[in-house]
């Protein structure tokens, strides 16, 4: 079952003719995902790699292809508009990969999303993977930029603000023989479409997810909010890790949202809230899978 996407999910790509979007669309096709349409204004009628028809707008692309999800690879100045277009077209899921969208644009997007049935993942994220049953998890649904081959079909859910730390966790799980139900990168921006808590709730309701790895980092209070809910409502075993214990206050650590400001958003506060909620917090990033296996 997994969450958000499965091997039947039909995906369209906004920004499919850009080099970054094109490359990752190709990789998703090779992974066996159903990329059914592309959108680049002014290029309708063209076909990507002899396989994927391109449309001028999302509404047409969705109507013609039956896509219910979108991957956004549009450059930062135009990305918020691309998200809103996908929302307006009524897609169920929008995954924004783009890094560097101005915060003000995302504040507006977030406000426009209130009451909308569309779920936004990202921006500034690696995307979503539900591994398939083939060799190297081939045949699954890969939306975004994560390496497909490190996954393995299974029953562990992964949610994270960081791309490479997600890969690290997935790799550790796969190396230990533990597969994943779905892996969700929620992104490193201060205004994310979905939070840890949004995704944890989905994992909690998913009968095929047995355990969860939740990876956070300094900045904001999303991990604390998730921990508070988990403490009261979630009975599945959860392991976690928080990056940034050694980050100097007031500095943005690569991700726009990774900043301790005014004494808020420290790793210590997050780790203590997670431990208080019964989450098994790994001491080093090498022990994320180990921390979960201990409590499974």
């Amino acid at each position: 079952m997994a969450i958000l996407v499965n091997s039947d999910t039909k995906v369209l790509v906004q920004g499919i003719t850009g080099s970054f979007g094109g490359r990752h669309t190709q990789l998703s096709l090779e992974y066996g995902s159903q990329i059914v349409a592309g959108v680049t204004p002014g290029k309708s009628g063209q076909v990507f790699e002899d396989k994927v028809p391109i449309f001028d707008n999302v509404t047409e692309a969705a109507k013609e292809s039956g896509a219910t999800a979108s991957a956004i690879f549009v450059p930062p100045p135009f990305a918020a508009d691309a998200i809103l277009e996908a929302v307006d077209a009524g897609l169920e899921l929008v995954v924004a990969i783009t890094e560097g969208i101005p915060v003000r644009d995302m504040i507006e997007v977030k406000a426009a999303l209130r009451g909308s049935p569309t779920r936004l993942i990202g921006p500034n994220c690696p995307g979503v993977v539900t591994p398939g049953t083939g060799e190297n998890s081939h045949g699954g649904c890969r939306i975004g930029i994560a390496p497909g081959y490190i996954h393995k079909k299974g029953d562990i859910g992964v949610v994270s603000r960081s791309g490479t730390l997600t890969y690290e966790a997935v790799w550790q799980l796969t190396s230990n023989g533990l597969g994943q139900s779905t892996c969700v990168g929620i992104g490193g921006d201060p205004v994310p479409g979905s939070t840890h808590l949004d995704i944890i709730k989905l994992f909690n309701e998913d009968p095929e997810t047995r355990g969860i790895i939740m990876i956070g980092e300094i900045g904001g209070s999303a991990e604390e909010e998730a921990a508070a809910w988990i403490k009261e409502n979630c009975n599945k075993p959860i392991a976690g890790f928080i990056a940034g214990t050694t980050a100097p206050p007031g500095r943005r650590m690569g991700h726009a949202g990774a900043i301790v400001s005014g004494g808020k958003g420290t790793a210590e506060a997050k780790i203590s809230a997670m431990e208080d909620a019964g989450i098994s917090v790994a001491e080093t990033p090498s022990q994320m899978a180990e921390a979960l296996i201990k409590i499974l």
Partner: peptide
């Protein structure tokens, strides 16, 4: 490579 992994 990667901000999260760099912090970690």
């Amino acid at each position: 490579n990667g901000a999260g992994l760099a912090m970690a």
